[in-house]
Simulated scan of single mutants.
Amino acid sequence: MIGELIRTPGALGGFMLLVLIFGFAPGIVLAVIVRLIPDLDRRYELQAELYEVPRWERPFWVAEQFEVSLRIGMVPRVEWGWGRFVWHRCKLESGLASTREYPDSFEVPDDEVKTEIRPGDHVKLMWSVRRFPGERMWVTVTERTGDRLVGTLNSMAIYVYMHPDEAIKFHIDDIIDCALDNDELAIEAEAA
């Protein structure tokens, strides 16, 4: 009986296709799909659930998980990229230009204070965002080369599509406020 089935034209190929579809493919495809999901525990959970699903339902179950991983994995990444680079394009604003435009109401640190800024100091920068109000956030200076600075974002952005600890390059004239390390030491010494 089995010998007759194997000798039938196309039977061996059909059998191999069934083994692939219901045997190997669901596990391999699911391993690729779960890479889209940011939560590591959820990845392991889905891979363990695969072997609880009846073998004949596994290809369809994996297809459902593909939809889930697209929704919770890819969609937020695409939204983030779209928001940051297309929809909410933000621009770092110059504190010096703002104080020249509004001299009575917008103050920035003077040039003497700005020359004292070193790595480890905190500075406040402001961003304008199309379609939304701008934001002012604190940045920790990590490098300084003349008037060019590099720092990491300390704040959690609301309108600006940036992550905390993201590296930011800026000019000394972009600073709207600062908290120097030596200021903090002076405050601590006065309190003691």
Results as ranks from 00 to 15, higher is better:
H163M: 09
L12F: 04
K124N: 08
K91Q: 14
T99H: 10
G134S: 00
W138P: 05
T145E: 11
P54V: 03
E52F: 06
E143V: 05
F22G: 12
D39N: 15
W80L: 07
R100I: 09
R58S: 06
E188P: 05
F15G: 10
T140P: 02
L70M: 11
I172C: 12
M1L: 06
P9Q: 06
M137P: 06
T115N: 14
V129H: 10
A25K: 06
A189D: 06
R136P: 01
R77C: 00
W138R: 08
E166A: 13
W87K: 11
T99K: 12
E49V: 12
A25I: 12
P133G: 02
S98Y: 02
V78R: 03
F106K: 00
L20F: 15
E166M: 10
G23M: 07
S69L: 01
A189K: 09
R7I: 03
W138F: 07
E190G: 12
F22Q: 13
A31Q: 08
F24M: 08
C178I: 00
I37H: 10
L18H: 07
L20K: 06
D147A: 13
I168G: 01
G73I: 04
A63E: 08
L180I: 06
P26A: 11
G81D: 04
F66Y: 15
R71V: 07
L36H: 12
D110A: 02
T142E: 08
L149D: 10
L50S: 11
P54W: 10
T145F: 01
A157D: 08
